[in-house]
Amino acid sequence: MWSYLLKRVLAVIPVLLVVTIIVFLMLRLTPGDPAANIAGDAATTQDIEKLRIELGLNEPLPVQFAIYVKNLAKGDFGESFYYKRPVISMVADSVEPTLSLALFTIFFACLIAVPLGTLAAFKQGSWLDRIVMAFSVIGFSVPVFVIGYILIYVLSVKLGWFPVQGYQHIGDGILGWAYRLILPSMTLSVIFIALIARMTRTSVLEVLNEDYIRTARAKGLSQSRILIKHALRNAAVPIVTIIGIAIAILISGVVVTESVFVIPGLGLLTLDAIQGRDYPTVQALIFLFSVVYVLINLIIDVIYTLLDPRIRY
């Protein structure tokens, strides 16, 4: 197990190296000049050139890359072209909203989707099953921003139940934090409820046909015990996989949701940084996203071994 973990962690290094190179090149080979952006419309060519030297953009690409990697190895992600602050502190400021939103959403989605999927499987063919299936088709087909604006229109503008936009830091009161997260989480979770409920249903259905479920019934166990202890636990591996994928998709999904609800998280930061061609910030963010993706996968593989004693690495 430990040797497996070590191998997996070491395997991250080449992945990150490739990501670093690609992001670095993509930013510099696509049109747009950060210096010109920062200098503004009234700047002269000299002003821009001065800025370029200041930002280190006048060096040849290999030299720029070497400096970047050298700093990265020291844990230094550089300084934002715009805000003149270390990128890492900007990311730290934005992590809380994004993480709150992502975890809130996935928690909300699992809470609804897993029981719903399990019940749909148990009552296969019933009205409940049909509603769950219909919902999951709708959930897949409607884009996030459409759901977001519909929810804002109905629940905020018309009914006035929730604030239209904005975020409250968890430090400023946990109730206000949760209250403001409800609407964006609902928006984001629709597709994940659809995805997870569907996967849960399929997976539980398959398990319900297994011989050990028959054994459990022959033992005189109650329905709920059979469903939860025997069926769900055995069906868990594919469900956990899909939740892991959901988290990964979620992180990219928050970019849209955060801009709709104006939440100052990583999504908004990424959007601003790309628009402003703020190289260090974009590089740092994508590097971090990659690390998170790899970690999620690793965590899921470890969860497999906890769920199923037959899986050993």
Partner: peptide, 18 residues
Amino acid sequence: ALNPVMTCGEQIDEVLVE
């Protein structure tokens, strides 16, 4: 016929719990 993710003991024990 046995649940692969529960120990044998737990599976027998369940009968007594129920």
